[in-house]
């Protein structure tokens, strides 16, 4: 039962990493799109493809928080009291990002657009970086069971920095693939080339960082390293293969297939982390079973998850299909 709750929680983490990640990544491309004139068209595509979906994608984060504190309350408190610096900064970053994005759609003067746009784009990079360091802190076992771990080294350490950098890169990669697909859907060759090039570059950079990362994990988080290269190995390979395939097919494949491959690449590496860590929630000192809330709580969460499956998943499918058929317009 507790394993099931952990799986549901982790499904939320994966969904946020992929969907929320793509939105964060779009902010990355927004920031790097250059001056007002040069960056106008890519920014417009970012705006159009992000506006209808980012709030729904953002809810996955709430889902993770709620699942965590209800199903694994002590672990939640331990994480929060240890990693409060990056988490607090993430929270503020999220406020900046969401409101900056919402405001940018309304203001018309270029200089004002620049200010709110920069707030949106900059926080789109800061937030995933900090969330990545949080993931690194948890994965490398730096959160003690009772919480109140080291407020600095818990997130300023090799694994965390690797997590932060990888988070930014994977977000940028997914977003670039999504935007390539979106540009193709609109028959916009120029933007398609624009984002394809960026997807290729980030894919290569991500691959290199991931390879370097193996060495980092070997030195800094041996248990995670072992887990990833034994039980998690198929998933790591799958992730690499999907990324590579997406890279090769970038100029040919149908948009939907491309998006699928990018999603699979990110999702499988995140799942790989989960598999490597199982059956522990924190390091090797707090197991899922010990951390879990009473069974009746887990049952009620299961009911909520089932209701989500029945209500939320079709609604999300409706939203995405309306968007991809061009029925939603800012």
């Amino acid at each position: 039962m507790s394993t099931f709750a952990a799986v549901v929680l982790f499904a939320g983490v994966v969904a946020y990493a992929v969907l929320g990640g793509a939105d964060f990544g779009a902010g990355f491309w927004d920031l790097t799109a250059g001056g007002a004139e040069r960056g106008r068209r890519p920014r417009h595509l970012v705006d159009e493809s992000l506006a209808p979906v980012w709030e729904a994608n953002h809810v996955w984060l709430i889902f993770c928080l709620v699942m965590m504190w209800t199903a694994f309350p002590t672990a939640f408190a331990a994480i929060m009291t240890t990693l409060y610096v990056p988490l607090g900064l993430t929270a503020l970053g999220i406020v900046m990002r969401g409101s900056g994005f919402a405001f940018r759609k309304v203001v018309v003067q270029t200089d004002q657009q620049r200010v709110v746009g920069a707030a949106f784009a900059l926080s789109s990079i800061v937030s995933p970086f900090f969330l990545g360091t949080v993931a690194g802190g948890i994965a490398s076992g730096r959160v003690p069971t009772r919480g109140y771990g080291d407020p600095v080294t818990s997130w300023l350490n090799p694994t965390s920095v690797l997590g932060g950098v990888l988070a930014i890169l994977t977000c940028a990669f997914t977003a670039a693939v999504f935007l390539t697909a979106e540009a193709r859907r609109r028959d916009d060759d120029e933007l398609e080339r624009y984002f394809r090039r960026r997807a290729q570059v980030t894919a290569v950079v991500t691959g290199v960082v991931a390879l370097v990362g193996i060495a980092v994990l070997h030195a800094d988080a041996p248990r995670l390293f072992d887990g990833l290269l034994s039980r998690g190995l198929p998933l790591v390979i799958l992730s690499g293969a999907c990324g590579l395939l997406a890279l090769l097919l970038l100029s040919r494949a149908a948009p939907r297939l491309l998006q699928g491959l990018a999603v699979a690449a990110v999702a499988s590496v995140v799942v790989g982390w989960g598999v490597a860590q199982y059956p522990y929630l924190l390091g090797t000192h707090l197991s899922i079973q010990v951390a879990a809330a009473p069974t009746s709580t887990l049952w009620s969460l299961t009911l909520v998850a089932a209701a989500a499956l029945i209500l939320v998943v079709p609604s999300l499918a409706l939203l995405f299909s309306l968007q991809q058929r061009g029925r939603l317009e800012a």
């Binding site: 709620v66 504190w69 209800t70 309350p73 002590t74 408190a77 919480g147 709580t297």
Partner: peptide
């Protein structure tokens, strides 16, 4: 930490 199992 103490009441998340109910309050959550």
């Amino acid at each position: 930490g103490r009441f998340g199992a109910a309050y959550g």
